[in-house]
Nucleic acid binder design. Structure first.
Lengths: 140, 140
DNA sequence: CCCTTATTGATAGTATTTTTCAATAAGGAT
DNA sequence: ATCCTTATTGAAAAATACTATCAATAAGGG
């Protein structure tokens, strides 16, 4: 089920604004702020308002169609979301991101955490930082 | 080396504002926003300005004396930082947090990520969400 | 106790996000 | 294809979050 079906089957409309945003985000590896998304789309001739960017980001987040990433400096940005459980790695130099779905089996770690903290463990947020292939060439 | 020594040995002063912030944060499990920190301290009679909260949060972050956590809804908040490499688990209901230092050995996962993404992997941000002991009683 | 200067609070300024509301367009019904 | 309903939109304004500036203060070495 692609993103259009996902939205449509939940009673949401496939609008130009949403198509433009999804296209931009899936073409971009670098996490974009709402403002950056707005500027990029205006430059491409879109008439979309910044408010719609915020609204649609919220909607797309609800359906896991976009992901929020946190840069090393704490700034947040959005990228197109992969399907299913996955995580991102972010280049410390150029901010470019990549998806990996090889998610470790955390069951052993979760047992330790539950023993140590008395919490019942649910889901998690895991993100790696590193150097992308291009920046390896440039900086190593 | 406690936080006072850490700051002092780097030429920073141990001010009332910093003592108040560190005391508040180490007494609180729930991540607090800059605004919440400011309000809480004013209620306790402090004359600190909101601006100093921001400035000192930045400073304390630089020395890993406080940590920024990301709530499930994406909101950020600050807690007193543990020593050394550690992670947090956050209660989905009451936002209360706990520290765990049993950090899995990620070397195998890192190899997989590097193979899959061609990135060189550096550090990571890992945070769990779950239910704290109190909320387990209330909601289960 | 004095002196230097990092730190502070207040004010003002900028950036970010949310609210409101009439106009528009998506898409099912006709 | 055209109409109708209403989710969605853009614009303007309001609310919130964060940063810059600067004179006054207080931390801490001498």
């Amino acid at each position: 089920m692609n993103w259009k079906e996902k939205l449509a089957s939940n009673g949401h409309r496939i609008t130009q604004a949403r198509e433009q945003m999804m296209r931009l985000l899936s073409q971009t590896q670098v996490p974009l702020s709402p403002m950056q998304i707005h500027s990029a789309l205006r430059e491409q001739g879109s008439k979309m308002g910044l408010v719609s960017v915020y609204r649609n980001l919220n909607l797309l987040m609800d359906y896991d169609l976009v992901c929020m990433l946190v840069a090393p400096d704490g700034n947040a940005g959005y990228v197109a979301g992969g399907t299913g459980h996955h995580h991102h790695i972010l280049c410390k130099v150029c901010q470019s991101s990549a998806i990996f779905d090889e998610c470790e089996d955390f069951s052993e770690l979760i047992s330790k955490i539950e023993a140590q903290t008395q919490f019942v463990v649910g889901d998690h947020f895991l993100q790696f930082y590193g150097l992308c292939p291009q920046c390896q060439e440039t900086y190593v």
